[in-house]
Design a protein around this nucleic acid. Structure first.
Lengths: 125, 125
DNA sequence: CAGTATCCCCGATGATACTG
DNA sequence: CAGTATCATCGGGGATACTG
């Protein structure tokens, strides 16, 4: 959901804003990965996420930069080096992700016959 | 995301489970509406949500029943009367929604030039 | 290495009509 | 009243190829 900052369109309810920030298939995972690495390079993120494509990863990172959830630091070397890290705003969602994670663990066992698997990313929260 | 209970497929990470439960465009709103009405009828939910269509509302309610987030009570009267209410599991996500709501209010002002609007549903949390 | 550029697919959501 | 049935749409996400 694009709430174009400049145009100030798409007035949204608070929960929508939150879900736009860390919802979707990848953003929460990216936050998790960044949370356990002070700084991390593009290809390391990609490796940790396993099966994300470049197009999607690049798009997610771009949105998250615009949302001020992460910062991108580019070193003009050859080969290029770019590092990503959580901003303070980014770090501030970690407790929420932990809450969701804990809630899910507590309530999924009843619903699913199986327990939720350990999650490489969430478990490092 | 359908994690068919019977087939037990789609093993997911905890955060995914949570986002499946209350993520998406409508579920969190439905939970909010139900949280401020002990019981509420189908058309009342629809009215409160404003612009949801029957097809989508019915689908959401069905999923949420399957997830054991809400209960449906049907009275065999004419005209039909059906009431919905949050289960204990459903109520247990309210603190999380509140967290998200509060976090959004605290952090959106910087990003958006405008404050997030009061939200009929969230504000009753 | 860290991405862009394209093209494509599918599932979530919406519109509309109909019914027990 | 409380839905179901169909069809249409839209965009998030994916596949692949290419590049400074």
């Amino acid at each position: 959901m694009k709430y174009d900052l400049k145009l100030g369109k798409e007035i949204m309810c608070p929960i929508e804003y939150g879900l736009d920030i860390f919802g979707g298939k990848w953003k929460s995972r990216i936050i998790c990965v960044l949370s356990s690495n002070k700084v991390i390079r593009y290809n390391e993120i990609k490796k940790e996420l396993g099966n994300i494509t470049d197009a999607v990863l690049a798009a997610m990172l771009k949105e998250m930069i615009a949302d001020e959830m992460i910062i991108r630091t580019q070193y003009n070397e050859i080969p290029p080096r770019v590092e990503y890290a959580l901003t303070e705003k980014g770090k501030s969602v970690l407790p929420i992700l932990q809450c969701i994670c804990q809630w899910s663990r507590e309530h999924s066992a009843e619903a699913l016959d199986t327990k939720l698997p350990a999650c490489i990313s969430c478990d490092q929260l």
